[in-house]
Design a protein around this nucleic acid. Sequence first.
DNA 1: TAGATTGTTAATCGATTAACAATC
DNA 2: TAGATTGTTAATCGATTAACAATC
Lengths: 217, 217
Amino acid sequence: MDLDKKVSIAVVRRLPRYYRYLADLLKMDITRVSSKELSARMGITASQIRQDLNCFGGFGQQGYGYNVESLYNEIGNILGLNNKYQAIIIGAGNMGQALANYTNFEKRGFKLTAIFDVDPELIGKSINNIGIRDLETIDSYIKDNKVDVAMLCVPYEQTPIIADRVARLGVKGLWNFSPMDLELPYDVIIENVHLSDSLMVLGYKINQKLKNGKNKK
Amino acid sequence: MDLDKKVSIAVVRRLPRYYRYLADLLKMDITRVSSKELSARMGITASQIRQDLNCFGGFGQQGYGYNVESLYNEIGNILGLNNKYQAIIIGAGNMGQALANYTNFEKRGFKLTAIFDVDPELIGKSINNIGIRDLETIDSYIKDNKVDVAMLCVPYEQTPIIADRVARLGVKGLWNFSPMDLELPYDVIIENVHLSDSLMVLGYKINQKLKNGKNKK
DNA sequence: TAGATTGTTAATCGATTAACAATC
DNA sequence: TAGATTGTTAATCGATTAACAATC
C-alpha cells in the first residue's frame, strides 16, 4: 500500500487480462487461486503475476494464495471501473455507431452521454438512447457537461483538428481510433486503437509463418 | 538481407508506425530522411530507428540517410501489404459492420470476400458489396474458397466455438475482437483487438493523472 | 507443527540507447 | 576531400524470471 514508484505500462496493460481471468474463476465459483494456478491458466509466470500484483499492494496470503473475489475487486478498483467518467463519441460513422452500441461502458468506468456528427441525416437521431448532436454545438456541450473523455471516430483529416479542439476545452482523455499518433500540447491522456496497425501486424505474422514453413522443408 | 534472427514483436509493432510516418513524408514530397530527422518527428531515438530497420536489411546509405519512397516500399513489403489474403468477417453486428465498411483492406494485404451471420434478417443482404451469408454454410465456403483469415466479431460465448471451427478448416489467421485470449491447439496466428482492455487502460491512466495532480499540491 | 505460497531481493534476459568505425 | 550518416558493436537500462526467507 506504499507504492507510487511508477508502474510500467507493460504491467498496466496486463491488468485487464488479470481482471478477465479472475472474472472467469468467479463465474466458476472458484474462491481461491495461487499465482501458480493462475500462471498455468494465463500462460505467464507465477513470478510475474506476484510481481505485477505487488506493484499495487499485498493482496495475497502466504500459504493460501489469493481470494478470487477480493483480488477481482481490487483490480477493478485499480483500473477505476467504479468511476463514471463522462464520455462522448465524436463521429457517428461505422466505428462511432459500433462504439455507441457497446453496452458495457458503465462496467468499465465510463458513461456515454452524447454523440456528435456533422451529417444532418444523423443529427437528432439516437443510438442506444443516446442522441446524436450537431458537432457545431460541441464546445458549449463540453463546457456545460464537464466531459471527461472524447472517443474520436472522425475521418483521418479531421482527427487532429477535433482532438485539439476538445483538448482545449479541458477533456482529460482521448480514445483515438484514427491511424495517427496525436500530439497535443496539452496535458491530455491519449489511448490509441490502431486497427489498421493491428491488421498489418497480423499480415506480417502470417507471412512469417508461411516463410518459416517453407524454410523448414 | 541475411537475417532470420528472430525479430521481436516490439520491433514488428513499430513497423506500421514507420510506414505511416513515411507515408506522411511522401505526401509532403520529401524524398530523403535521416534517422535523426525521423527520430524528431516520431519521438523515438535515432538509434532505435536504425536498429529496427537493420533487422530487415540495410536500407540506408551513409552520409545520405534513407530514401523515403524506397524505405516506404520496403516496409510495405515486409508487412506483406502486397498480399491478397482472402478474408471473411464472422458476425455482422455493430463491429462486423464497421469492419465490413472499412475500405482499405486491399491496401493492407487483405481481400474481404464474405461476411457470415446467423440472423435471417441479415443473411442475403450486402455491406459494401459483400454479401452476408448464413453461418451454417461457412464450412464449405472456407473449403471452396481457401480463406486465409477470419475476422471474429461474434458474441463472447460464441467466439471460442467459431474460432475452433474455422481453425480446423485451415484458416491461417484470426483477427479477434472478443475480450478473451483464444487458445487453439492449432497452428493459427491470432491477433487480438481488445477494445475493452484498451478502454480500461485509458481509465487507469486518467485516474493516475488525477491522483498525481492531487499529490503534487 | 509442516506444508504451501506469498512478498521481495537477486540474477538473468532482452530491449533500448550510446558510441564509433565504415563509407557514401 | 570533408561532412554526414549509416550499420553495428558495446553499454545501459528495464523487465522478466528465479530463488528464498517470511509467514499464514
